[in-house]
């Protein structure tokens, strides 16, 4: 009922220390790839493929914004004579490009692809949560005919790898004109995520005693008003945790994005590898694109970490 209804034994100092050491060790191993992405993004292309690897900035290599410049711009190679004949550079990425015998000819597609990712991931997450919460509430509270079978059906949509239905989805989307559209991708990711959302949220809503809604309904509210005023505020933690899981899936999804998007609705994951092909293996640009791509999930998770932690452990501690 209240937070102090279940007591937790405080672990000993030794156990805490051991746990901390383990967590730190694990974090080091897990974070090395991220560190490498960060380091590579500030290296020059030759430094990025140097052997032995250059590790420490300012000691082994000089940090440069070249990776980020290459990420955001498209450039064309020119002769030194041509470049010498140009008006003085405007500095910044222009300067960097000229040092490689190139000139900036325009912006790259990274920003629009990133925006696509944002719209599709957040859009499908929002849709999954809205549908999932409504369905989970209905399954939790009402006598739904064939409830168990329906819940199993919803779960079963999760049982095979989504990519197994790639060809049918591809053909269907072509017929419906949903190929390479943001709407198409939002619907696709929602269809994958909504099963997870229904199952997770049903668990959270089951834990909210129905007496709260009943009390509100007696106090003069309709069921819908009771849902808004009483159930939703208490389901926030579960909703946030579920939203983060949905968002991570939609944000990271690669296979469908490669298959179904090519331009207008292309997301960042299929775009970033393409950078490699443009004018040699430009690892710093790839690393820069990847590093920026990681940020939204990081920010979202950090902002909501309090809810997330409570959400993940929810139900684990019973009254």
């Amino acid at each position: 009922m209240s937070a102090n209804a279940h007591s937790v034994v405080e672990p000993s100092a030794g156990a805490k220390l051991a746990a901390s050491v383990l967590v730190i060790l694990y974090a080091c191993v897990a974070l090395i790839p991220l560190l490498w992405i960060g380091l590579t993004s500030i290296k020059s292309p030759p430094d990025s493929i140097a052997y032995p690897p250059k590790v420490v900035p300012f000691v082994h290599f000089t940090p440069t914004a070249e990776g980020f410049c290459n990420l955001f711009t498209t450039r064309s190679r020119q002769t030194p004579d041509y470049i010498a004949g140009l008006p003085p550079s405007t500095g910044g990425c222009d300067e960097v490009a000229r040092s490689r015998n190139m000139v900036v000819v325009g912006a790259s597609n990274y920003v629009p692809r990133f925006v696509n990712s944002l719209i599709i991931a957040f859009g499908s997450t929002a849709l999954s949560i809205v549908l999932g919460t409504a369905a989970a509430y209905a399954f939790s509270r009402f006598r739904v005919p064939l409830k168990d079978d329906l819940m199993f059906f919803i779960l079963s949509t999760r049982m095979m790898p989504p990519i197994a239905v790639a060809i049918p989805v591809f053909l269907m989307y072509r017929e419906l004109g949903l190929s390479d559209t943001r709407l198409g991708m939002i619907l696709l990711y929602t269809s994958v995520n909504v099963s997870l959302a229904v199952w997770l949220l049903k668990g959270f809503i089951d834990e909210i005693p129905r007496e709260y809604e009943e009390a509100a309904m007696i106090d003069g509210y309709t069921r819908l008003q009771a849902f808004w005023k009483v159930v939703l505020p208490q389901a926030t933690t579960g909703i946030v945790a579920t939203a983060i899981f949905c968002l991570i899936f939609a944000w990271n999804e690669y296979a469908f994005a490669v298959l179904l998007t090519s331009g207008a609705a292309q997301t960042a994951p299929p775009f970033i590898p393409i950078i490699i092909g443009e004018g040699g293996q430009d690892w710093p640009a790839v690393a820069a694109g990847t590093a920026l791509f990681l940020l939204p999930i990081l920010v979202f998770t950090v902002l909501l970490r309090k809810h997330l932690l409570r959400g993940i452990t929810f139900g684990a501690v019973r009254k």
Binding site: M1, E211, A216, M217, I218
Partner: peptide
Amino acid sequence: PPAARDVTFVFQQYSLY
């Protein structure tokens, strides 16, 4: 519906929001 009846209810538990 309950709201239209002008009744109140005290539950055994979980009474408060």
